[in-house]
Amino acid sequence: MVVLGTIALSSCSRPYLFMRTINEEESRYVRFQARYGEGQDGVALKFAHPVALGELEWAHLLDNIIIQEQQKLLALGGTRSAPRPAFGVDEKRYLAKHLAEGFQKARPDEWVVFYLSHPREPGVVEIDSGGFFIDGERLHLIVANYRQPVSMAFIREQIWNDPLRPAGDSFYDVIPQSYQVLQTVRRKDLTQSLLKQVPELSIDYSAQLNDDVNGDGEAVGSSIEDRLRILKRLRDRDLISEEQFRMKQARLLERL
């Protein structure tokens, strides 16, 4: 009775996760996700969606997501690797393209989730999964799984169906950069996972993009032409004033 009751409760009390595909391939996807049903306290989540950020801007934001391998217990003789961008070139290109597309179409109650997998060795895949949403002036990134090795298909399916569900403990720390704040929370409003905490990065994305435009170019690796395009989009969306636009445009043009 107890067992059956617990299983029934675990099934019935869960919300229904509604998903729409932005892009889906065999080993990765970017989707919209929304949550309906029990467990949301009757309050619909409301985000500042849609948002028109271009592929280039997303690439810049993704470049600034930095991770570092955790310091391990008993690491006698071991060395800790240096901080590095969380996403490789191909992952960044894929995410930037489809995040740009997705956030232009996202409804206020939808967030954008992703799932990326890579074979690690026979019988094991590494999975990255998480979600983005924009709340007010800040972009939020939830990193539910990062380079998480998974050997059992049912866990892969769980993450595929609920990419904000952490499959286990992470072995990497998200290292907050300028304009970023890191918090660790149990995201019961966004995921069906009940026990695990996940890192959530809150980014002042306008300030970060603005700063990247003013920067020396090394961090974002883009050309002056790219930066001018970003600058124009920031002005067009009223994220910077006309005066700021002209000042920064002039500064960039001086470099030519």
Binding site: E69, Q70, L74, P149, S151, M152, I155, G168, S170, T184
Partner: peptide, 20 residues
């Protein structure tokens, strides 16, 4: 949440317990 106490092979392979 404690995130640094990892048994030996989990440490070696950067793997959560559920891998094995």
């Amino acid at each position: 949440q404690e995130s640094h106490a990892i048994p030996a092979w989990a440490r070696k392979y950067d793997a959560d317990c559920a891998m094995c």
